[in-house]
């Protein structure tokens, strides 16, 4: 049973805490949807739909991190760098909704907490790091390093989301310190995998269509201007 579930089940958090984070998720998604409009047009909307599908696909690919322990992509940093943070948060949320409703993965009452961790907190942290490192992303290696660090941060910070939720509404019979050490420790390893997959994907897309990569948008203005002057 545990092998085919990737997200938080029902019952790990008490009802009050589940409701609290359902509220956080609803507010976060409403803000994201409002801001996402600016980043979506006839050209980027279909790409964003495919980014969500790509995140769904890569989340299925658990890779080994320790004997008996696996990890999988969360995808928030990847989606944010490709289609922007607001659209990216929506992409990961849609994946989590599909997983919970169609594949019975991730509890229905835990959906708000799962969205908060992976779609909101993780995506925000990953995109923030990507923005800070953006000026180094001038060549392929720089972009790969930027993507790696952003994705690593996304994974580790998302795991702290669970720690926060468990601290508020988890079973007090279990030591928060032990849970935190195990969870964050293993997510540092998963973050390396997330970083590698994210860097490979971003570099591949940037090699074919740099104009479609949200993170690189500003850097192509110079090119556009030159073309306009020539024309």
């Amino acid at each position: 049973m545990s092998a085919v579930a990737m997200h938080m089940s029902d019952g790990l958090l008490d009802t009050k805490t589940s409701l609290l984070f359902a509220g956080v998720a609803v507010v976060g998604l409403a803000v994201a949807a409002a801001r996402a409009r600016n980043d979506l047009d006839d050209r980027t909307a279909p790409l964003a739909g495919l980014v969500a599908a790509f995140v769904f696909a890569t989340q299925m690919l658990n890779f080994p991190v320790l004997p008996g322990v696996s990890g999988h992509l969360l995808g928030g940093a990847l989606a944010a760098m490709l289609v922007g943070p607001w659209v990216g948060a929506l992409c990961v949320s849609i994946v989590l909704v599909v997983q919970a409703l169609v594949f019975a993965d991730g509890g229905l009452t835990a959906l708000g907490a799962n969205i908060t961790n992976m779609a909101l907190i993780g995506t925000a942290a990953g995109f923030l790091v990507a923005t800070l490192l953006k000026r180094f992303a001038k060549n392929r290696a720089g972009l790969a390093v930027t993507a790696f660090v952003a994705a690593f941060t996304n994974t580790v910070i998302a795991s702290f989301g669970f720690v926060l939720e468990f601290a508020i509404g988890g079973d007090p019979a279990f030591s928060l310190g032990t849970v935190t050490a195990t969870l964050v420790g293993v997510h540092c390893l998963i973050g390396v995998g997330e970083g590698v997959i994210t860097a490979l994907t971003l570099v591949a897309v940037a090699a074919v269509r740099p104009d479609l990569v949200y993170l690189l948008r500003g850097s192509h203005k110079a090119l556009d201007v030159r073309e306009e002057t020539l024309a």
Binding site: A3, T58, L61
Partner: peptide
């Protein structure tokens, strides 16, 4: 892009590690 996603979910998924993921491991 769609083709890559379909191959990952449709074919590569058979090679996924069946062990519990990080969150399951901790719980």
């Amino acid at each position: 892009f769609l083709a890559v996603a379909l191959v990952l979910a449709g074919v590569v998924s058979y090679f996924a590690d069946p062990n519990p993921d990080g969150l399951d491991h901790a719980t």
